[in-house]
C-alpha cells in the first residue's frame, strides 16, 4: 500500500521494509543552482493542494497496479533554496527492472498531471515562472 504526500515541511527518505523485496529505489528531485534563465537562488513551489494530492494519489495507485510495486511519493511546496529536496519518489519491488520503470513513470507523470507550479527566484532579483 503506497503513500502520496503534499507538504510544506522538509522531506525525508522513508524507511520501507518488506521481506519480499529485492529492490528499493529512491529518487530525490533537488533545487539546482543554475538554469537556462541564470543563477538560481530558490524555487517557489505553489499548488492547488487538494487536487495535487488526489492526482498524486491516483498516480501512485495506478503505478502500483501496473508494475506490482509499492510507491511512496512526496512533493514539497513553498520556498526551497538551492540544495533542498522538492520531490521524493521511493519504489519497493521484488526486482529492480519494474522498480526503475515505475520510478521513471511516476516522475514523468507528476510533471504533467499534478497541479504544482515553479517560480524560479534568480540571484539577480528576477523571478521566472517555469
Amino acid at each position: 500500500m503506497g503513500k502520496a504526500i503534499i507538504t510544506k515541511e522538509p522531506l525525508a527518505v522513508p524507511t520501507m521494509e518488506d521481506p519480499n523485496i529485492g529492490s528499493f529505489i529512491v529518487f530525490q528531485g533537488k533545487v539546482r543552482n543554475h538554469s537556462e534563465n541564470g543563477e538560481v537562488q530558490a524555487i517557489e513551489y505553489s499548488a492547488y493542494e487538494e487536487l495535487a494530492l488526489s492526482q498524486l494519489g491516483k498516480i501512485v495507485q495506478e503505478t502500483e497496479e501496473k508494475y506490482n510495486v509499492t510507491v511512496y511519493a512526496a512533493h514539497r511546496i513553498g520556498r526551497l533554496v538551492v540544495g533542498e529536496t522538492a520531490l521524493v519518489v521511493a519504489t519497493l519491488s521484488p526486482h529492480r527492472q519494474e522498480g526503475f520503470l515505475a520510478t521513471m513513470e511516476i516522475i514523468d507523470r507528476i510533471k504533467k498531471e499534478v497541479p504544482i507550479w515553479k517560480k524560479e527566484i534568480l540571484t539577480d532579483g528576477r523571478a521566472v515562472w517555469l
Partner: peptide
C-alpha cells in the same frame, strides 16, 4: 472553477 496553466512540479 480552477483555471490552471501548464504544470511543472518535480
Amino acid at each position: 472553477l480552477a483555471i490552471m496553466p501548464p504544470v511543472g512540479g518535480g
